[in-house]
């Protein structure tokens, strides 16, 4: 059954869909949730305990024009999953493209449209409650650099209104490949954060906007 399912998804991949995958790294190392990273020459005992984010509004472009868009394009990506984080976008007519764009986070209109289902269901834990709105990106962990309770740091980035609008649009040139694998390098994020000073960002604010931009720059499209 499982084999036939894999065969089936492969068939879709080859003929009529694009697969977008996400993997997670800390520099050159594979990032596993809850594992101590044991970095050489590093006494911070860094550990990532949560890494989740929304990818939305996936569209494909050719010569700068959108040629294919995914409908209802909202995906919660969670690094703490055994199943690989893969998104299949139907492309029945095998439309050719040379660029992919997607948003990191949830747009303003969706944020003011009430209760949603699927990956947007508030039970997914990516929703603020006292001041409602989606959390676009969650990164939590521990580091000796944080003089906080249990050395914890917590970054919940979001905000759907100016001046703290946090949604980021990412775009990458691609060679019309049916499989695109993105790598998020958490080291690129933490290298730009002074964890001793900035360790708790949990509401829409200026720091959230700055951090969202840093996060957006930590994604790479791996070349096949």
């Amino acid at each position: 059954m499982l084999l036939s399912f894999i065969a089936f998804t492969n068939a879709i991949n080859a003929q009529s869909a694009s697969t977008i995958g996400f993997s997670f790294a800390y520099g050159s190392r594979v990032l596993n949730i809850d594992d101590s990273l044991n970095l050489p020459n590093d006494s911070t005992f860094l550990r990532i305990t949560e890494l989740k984010f929304y990818i939305s509004n996936i569209r494909f472009l050719k010569n700068g024009e959108v040629v294919l868009e995914e409908k209802n394009s909202f995906h919660l990506v969670d690094a703490n999953q055994i199943i690989p984080n893969q998104i299949l976008v139907e492309n029945k007519q095998n439309i050719a493209f040379d660029e992919i764009k997607f948003d990191l986070g949830i747009d303003s209109i969706t944020n003011v449209s009430g209760a949603m289902g699927g990956d947007l269901d508030p039970t997914k834990g990516m929703y603020w409650t006292w001041q409602n709105g989606y959390i676009n990106f969650k990164l939590e962990g521990t580091s000796q650099l944080c003089k906080t309770r249990n050395n914890e740091f917590t970054f919940h980035l979001g905000g759907y209104q100016q001046p703290y609008y946090c949604l980021q649009t990412l775009h990458f040139k691609t060679n019309n490949s049916s499989t695109m694998n993105f790598k998020l390098d958490v080291q690129k994020i933490l290298n730009q954060v002074d964890l001793a000073k900035t360790n708790h960002v949990m509401s829409p604010c200026e720091e959230a906007v700055i951090l969202s931009k840093i996060v957006a720059n930590a994604f790479n499209l791996l070349q096949n």
Partner: peptide, 22 residues
């Protein structure tokens, strides 16, 4: 910003219902 999201606030608030929707 929306009536549908309103109930989440008291459900989650630690001095109101102190629960979570999940």
């Amino acid at each position: 910003n929306h009536l549908d999201a309103q109930s989440l606030a008291p459900i989650t608030n630690p001095v109101e219902m102190d629960e979570n929707i999940a």
